[in-house]
Computed example of a mutant assay.
Amino acid sequence: MLLFYTCYRHSIFVCGMLLTLVLYAMLLTAHGMAPPRFVLSPEMGGIKHASGFSLRKVSDVLAGRKYAVLTFDDGPYGQGLDEQILATLQKHHAHAVFFLVCSHINDATRGELAKFESAGDLIGNHTFDHPDLAKLGQPEIRQQIESCNQRIADVTGKRPTYFRPPFGSTTRAVGEVAKSLGMQQMLWNANSEDSWVKHPEQIRDFSLSQTEDQSVLLMHEKPMTAAVLDDILTQLEQRGFQFVLPDQLSDNVAIN
């Protein structure tokens, strides 16, 4: 009887260990689990999981996975810069939100919008000609946002979902206008500081130091930023980052 009990205890122990290893492997690799989905977190300026507690989130913690949204303001730039940024994103299986200043969309640059969409990236509204909206009344705010929506729709056939106020300068009135137009305002909680720094290495260092899990990283379509983007994404990947879009994941993004 004692021998049977000893074997029984050992069997439970072995089975328990095997089950633990299987569960751990499943959590670690996330095979068979739905990919994570994110929504904007206005109070934090970043993103947050669309669902509450899940095995997927536990898996991410165990595996050290982190997520960030890449954003680029002030395009389209033209002159090959958009293509350079898109090529770097493709190299890293990454996608981004491009917030366009619609006065920059002209005969020379309108073709860039199709390239953004073909790559699986999102086009956002950054107003028609980049004023400080906090200094404008509601009619002028609406004109800036809606005229940009219309310009993007004229080129792509679709109105953008996301809106970013120039300089991050927003007020209650700005938010109300954006909401009335069916748009979500996207700010940021990580900044490459590429709007003022003078050296690519500074852009890289600010991007790396400020980007944390569930960040929205602000960058601009600038030659210096494009020059250091590959290095930024490489080092973030080495820290466990994957690059996602809010509310959706592109079919081209592999989570593993």
Results as ranks from 00 to 15, higher is better:
Gly75Asn: 04
Thr170Val: 09
Phe128Leu: 14
Val177Tyr: 01
His93Tyr: 07
Arg110Val: 07
Ala153Tyr: 12
Ser103Met: 05
Glu146Ala: 09
Lys91Pro: 09
Val101Gln: 13
His95Lys: 15
Thr109Ile: 08
Tyr162Gln: 06
Leu187Val: 12
Thr109Glu: 11
Gly137His: 02
Gln144Val: 03
Asp74Thr: 02
Leu113Asn: 12
Gln84Cys: 06
Leu100Ser: 09
Gly182Ala: 02
Asp73Glu: 10
Phe163Met: 05
Glu140Trp: 10
Met186Ile: 14
Asp73Lys: 05
Leu122Gln: 02
His104Glu: 09
Leu113Glu: 11
Val177Leu: 03
Pro139Tyr: 01
Asp154Ser: 14
Pro160Tyr: 03
Gln185Glu: 13
Pro165Asp: 01
Val69Gly: 04
Gln143Leu: 08
His126Thr: 07
Thr109Lys: 05
Phe128Met: 15
Gln143Thr: 09
Glu83Asp: 15
Leu70Gly: 04
Gly157Ile: 01
Met186Ser: 13
Val69Asn: 06
Gln143Tyr: 08
Thr156Trp: 12
Thr171Tyr: 06
Glu176His: 00
Asn106Gly: 12
His92Ser: 12
Val97Arg: 00
Glu112Ser: 14
Leu86Phe: 07
Ile141Arg: 01
Asp73Ile: 03
Arg142Thr: 12
Ala108Met: 11
Leu81Tyr: 01
Cys102Phe: 06
Thr156Asp: 12
Gly137Asn: 06
Cys102Ser: 13
Thr161Arg: 15
Ala96Pro: 09
Asp129Asn: 10
Phe116Arg: 11
Ala134Cys: 08
Cys102Lys: 04
Ala178Glu: 00
Ala68Gly: 02
Ser118Lys: 15
His104Gln: 09
Asp132Trp: 01
Tyr67His: 14
Thr170Pro: 05
Val69Lys: 06
Thr161Gly: 11
Gly75Thr: 01
Cys148Lys: 00
Gln79Glu: 12
Glu83Phe: 09
Gly120Phe: 14
Leu89Met: 03
Asp73Gln: 08
Ala108Thr: 10
Ala114His: 14
Ala173Asp: 14
Gly137Trp: 00
Ala94Gln: 08
Pro131Trp: 01
Phe72Cys: 11
Asp121Val: 11
Asp132Thr: 05
Gly120Trp: 15
Thr127Lys: 04
Leu133Phe: 10
Asn189Gln: 11
Phe163Asp: 00
Ile152Ala: 05
Leu181Glu: 08
Met183Ala: 04
Ala178Ser: 03
Met183Gln: 15
Asp82Ser: 15
Gly175Thr: 01
Thr171Asp: 04
Ala173Arg: 12
Gly111Thr: 13
Ala68Glu: 03
Thr170Met: 09
Trp188Ala: 00
Lys135Met: 08
Gly168Val: 05
Gly175Trp: 03
Ile123Phe: 05
Ile141Pro: 00
Thr161Cys: 09
Ile152Asn: 02
Glu146Cys: 10
Ser180Pro: 10
